[in-house]
Write a protein that binds this DNA or RNA. Structure first.
Lengths: 339, 339
DNA sequence: ACGTAGAATGCAATCGATTGCGATTTTTGT
DNA sequence: ACAAAAATCGCAATCGATTGCATTCTACGT
């Protein structure tokens, strides 16, 4: 700004080397601060680089060193095309993952998946741009993931763990979570339950299965499942339709996510149906917003921060060549006002 | 699976070339599906590649072609270190950006910024890994961004536009938004206003300034600003402290974000203070959740999807060498229940 | 049968940084 | 003062794909 001689832009190490009167190799070593090169020249070169704002080309460095420092975060959109990525749960998990990964010096590349393609994950992990990959949610792509997991080690998946599975998953016991929610409703005296959620992916399917198991303890109780999307616009109208169909016939609703629960409560409120007095509602996830709403949400807590830590930890181990096993976390019922 | 001869893993184009009995160059062209190579050999090579699951190394391709197909999305954490990234507004914007960018065939790399460093943005844009960069929020880093914008063209920033600024920004007119919110409260009859928000970044500062301007139209009205963080944990206790300090002395609150508004309403509810009857509250952003809460939030709408589109559009123009100007969108007051 | 347009492929340079190894200089030991 | 050890530094190969240019081969016209 204050001196007219703006330093010429340097485009590569060779050029800097010429300016400094040394070889490219020396510059490379100097910039890496290796003790192999003389302290004085090292500092001189570093100063020169700083002065000209030179930074070595990462692409070349990565090609040569064969490691990228980049972790891929992949969100499969098997069903529900749009807006999935805006889902607060994924976003929150993603945020924590970003925190953890940047902390350990990794960059982070986001990929959404083009549905209808069979080799999406292969393409991502074989691209040679990634040191490892994190898959957020299995959607309906469990087999595709399983296939890749057989040959690609540094891969960790958020989702349900099935017996005999090769892929390393981190997630809560969704069935247990479903049981907790339904049990709570039954204990409050509800007998005619509904389940709102899309069971095409294994995770939500497990939650429904858990809720059904809980019924066994309460003779005469019933449960009916209503497919409900996560994409926010359709969700509201779908839920409205469900509520109309249900009428007075339900006194407890197990929702597959906090967002569904939130919308359900709002729609019940519009219809003048008191929550939890006439109908009790449970959520799933325990997002931050669930304690900020009115009424506060009774929900099944997944510890997202802990989950993110576990995923990154497992990935780190796998990057180091160890063999990290799957982790199944136990969900926890958080009692608040809605049920 | 059904045949024991698992195809050997191919690691580069040269190897595939040897197998196919052609040169590396031909393989490269065949994989790129160039008509320059004979249709038969082309298909033979493609089939061979598919069979062995070979995919060319992106790092090498990018080094050679000098373009990465990757757009950096940068979130500066000038103040408020932790959890900023989990802020729903940023996350929502980020989600839309991801949608837009993947749609146009770009990958997307996320970087959070190490505060206290002066050259964070230089490091990112000079790394040679990015075709362009999107900065989400200026925080208190406006000067650093401005400096980089002077030499790095493919850069678009979400935030406030100032006169004479080089950086290309996309954002709403925050002052106008602040005016809208305050005006609404005043029209409802409120006279003693409060503003909840952290004015260290230019965006929130503009909102406060706008609210103050609106006071001029209402003689005798007052406004007091209370610094309020966005990071969710401290926010609640800060707001609680503000409410205690305020007591009965306030009848309208302009909140700098929907999240702040949501928490404020919840805390007012706990204290038995009716919203909007005793105290009216406005939000800012119009996040999806603001229409899902009880009471629904009266808020200043930023069209996040349109903003994301505008950012990507400006970036695309800049990548093509054109000179896209800043965009200031007009905010819109959404009347619902809270004010 | 011969020259030549045109199609198909090979050759080798290139992108920019890293690094093993050898060459040169400086320092140390006696 | 001389040999040996240590400190510096340069050379050149390497990572893997792309691409301009040269070369070979085929086919066609006359």
């Amino acid at each position: 700004m204050n001196d007219g001689t703006k330093p010429a832009r340097i485009k590569n190490i060779a050029e800097l080397a010429r300016m400094a009167g040394v070889s490219a190799g020396t510059v490379s070593r100097a910039l890496a601060d290796k003790s192999l090169v003389n302290k004085e020249t090292r500092e001189r070169i570093q100063a020169l680089a700083r002065e000209h704002g030179f930074r070595p080309n990462q692409m070349a460095r990565r090609l040569r060193t064969q490691q990228t420092g980049v972790i891929g975060v992949v969100i499969p959109l098997g069903h529900e095309r749009r807006q999935h990525i805006s889902d607060p749960f994924f976003m929150t998990l993603f945020g924590y993952l970003a925190d953890e990964l940047t902390e350990s010096g990794h960059d982070l590349m986001l990929s959404r998946v083009i549905p209808g393609d069979d080799e999406w994950l292969d393409r991502i992990v074989d691209s040679g741009m990634l040191d490892g990959a994190l898959v957020i949610g299995q959607s309906n792509q469990t087999e595709a993931i399983e296939r890749v997991a057989q040959y690609y080690k540094p891969l960790v998946v958020w989702g349900s763990h099935r017996e005999g599975q090769v892929q390393c998953t981190v997630g809560v016991d969704n069935a247990a979570g479903g049981r907790l929610a339904a049990k709570r409703l039954l204990e409050r005296g509800a007998r005619r339950l509904a389940f709102f959620g899309d069971t095409k992916g294994p995770e939500i399917a497990d939650r429904l299965a858990g809720a059904e198991q809980a019924l066994a303890t309460a003779p005469g109780a019933t449960l009916r499942a209503f497919p409900t999307h996560l994409a926010s616009d359709e969700m509201a109208s779908q839920i409205a339709a469900h509520l109309d169909e249900i009428g007075e016939a339900v006194d407890g609703i197990v929702c597959a996510s906090d967002i569904i629960a939130m919308t359900t409560i709002r729609l019940l409120h519009e219809r003048g149906i008191a929550v939890p007095d006439r109908v009790a509602v449970t959520g799933f996830d325990d997002l931050p917003l669930s304690q900020r709403m009115v009424p506060q949400l009774t929900t099944v807590r997944q510890d997202i921060a802990a989950g993110a830590r576990a995923m990154v930890d497992a990935l780190r181990r796998r990057l180091a060549g160890e063999d990290a096993p799957s982790i199944v976390m136990q969900p926890e019922l958080v009692l608040r006002e809605s049920a």
